[in-house]
Design a binder for these strands. Structure first.
Lengths: 212, 212
DNA sequence: CCATGCAGTTAACAACTGTTCTCTGGAATT
DNA sequence: AATTCCAGAGAACAGTTGTTAACTGCATGG
């Protein structure tokens, strides 16, 4: 059950969210390591010192953004890789879900792609952790599939990492298509869909013949 | 033939190289978008204004770093994917070459991984271009292989991109292993080798059965 | 109802940034 | 030998940064 928090705490959460949103917007054109705290507070319309009530530093804010961007994604992952329907349909469904997610949360996707190898160690670490969790969940889902009979745990995790990387790469391509000029968008999006579909299909083939 | 350039031009190239080296070193702990020109000149021991004799901005310097990091890599790519020896041996050879490259030029690898999706558009563009060239070269090399008989150009390029992404991902993992504490290095490196080997092998299997 | 807590403000700090203009010494050209 | 060129130096600029301290006003808990 949800405890209705006082008008005080509510207001605090509101400015906190405003700081996160402003930061995310500013990060579309730069990296976290160059994001200044004054820049963020200015965008929100709040005094620079107010920042410290919510975050120790911009790196700290970055870690919070990782939670926001990836924390809520776990249920989606599960259904994406779930072993229902024929393989070809599952691939199409997964890619469609990725496309929708990029469409709905482009700034989050950009942030993760950018900061995964970015210049701020704690943020890299947080992303690494979340992606490792994703890989574990994908592994668990793959294990349910009859195709995985006879696979070692290690090999399942290997494949799961391959899938996670592939998803991120695809998401990044969708994002680039989204960023381009409006009249090219449809073409580029369908091109990415087609590319990603065939790559997924090829990996699926490798999976089927792994135990040969 | 090489024209021996005067002592004037030589000195200029020397400071230019010093600026690039200093920048690369500074970029181990931050992103290009937060790299200041004064920071770089200070590290070299040269006046801030001297920077302008070589680069218009730090973004410009970043593009030059992309050339330095990836420009000289094309001959290596060719031999890496060359279709000699049995498949298993080729995989091992490719991964070994990646490991050696990361060992020899860790800062370059880190720079590319970091700025590929980084906050500086011209640099992203430059990396995208170079990687596209790599993919084209890999495609050409794959086409020579008898296994590729009957493949469409599009499908070959699709696979080439998959290989290029996989190489970069592997390089990044080797780098992380290299950055960790010395006593874990050997274990982590061999773990990455083993993981990458199996992923490459699985992709290879998918490749063999593509036309089924 | 009153005392406490605490989100956000104001003001000030030393340090730093990119960029401009002017100057200098020595290599390059004639 | 005289002249031009130009990589780098030096000084100054307005603007920015993170962090500190002391404050204010209002929601909260006793």
């Amino acid at each position: 059950m949800s405890h209705t928090l006082g008008i005080r705490q509510a207001q605090k959460q509101k400015t906190r969210k405003a700081l996160l949103d402003a930061a995310l917007a500013l990060l579309e054109e730069q990296s976290l390591s160059s994001l200044g705290l004054r820049e963020v507070t200015r965008a929100v319309g709040v005094a620079p010192t107010a920042f410290y009530r919510h975050f120790r530093s911009t790196a700290d804010l970055g870690v919070a953004l990782v939670e926001e961007a990836l924390g809520s994604l776990h249920p989606m992952i599960r259904t994406t890789v779930s072993a229902t329907g024929d393989p070809e349909e599952r691939v199409a469904r997964a890619i469609d879900l990725i496309a929708r997610h990029v469409d709905g949360y482009p700034a989050h996707v950009r942030f993760i792609a950018r900061e995964r190898h970015g210049g701020v160690q704690p943020v890299r670490e947080a992303i690494r952790e979340q992606l490792a969790r994703f890989a574990q969940e994908v592994r668990a889902e793959l294990a349910k599939d009859p195709v995985s009979r006879g696979w070692s745990e290690d090999d399942l995790l290997m494949l799961a990492h391959l899938y996670v990387d592939q998803m991120l790469s695809t998401a990044s391509l969708f994002l680039e298509a989204l960023e381009g000029p409006e009249e090219e968008r449809a073409d580029r999006t369908s091109h990415v869909t087609q590319l990603a579909t065939r790559q997924m299909r090829l990996i699926g083939l490798g999976r089927q013949h792994w135990l040969d």
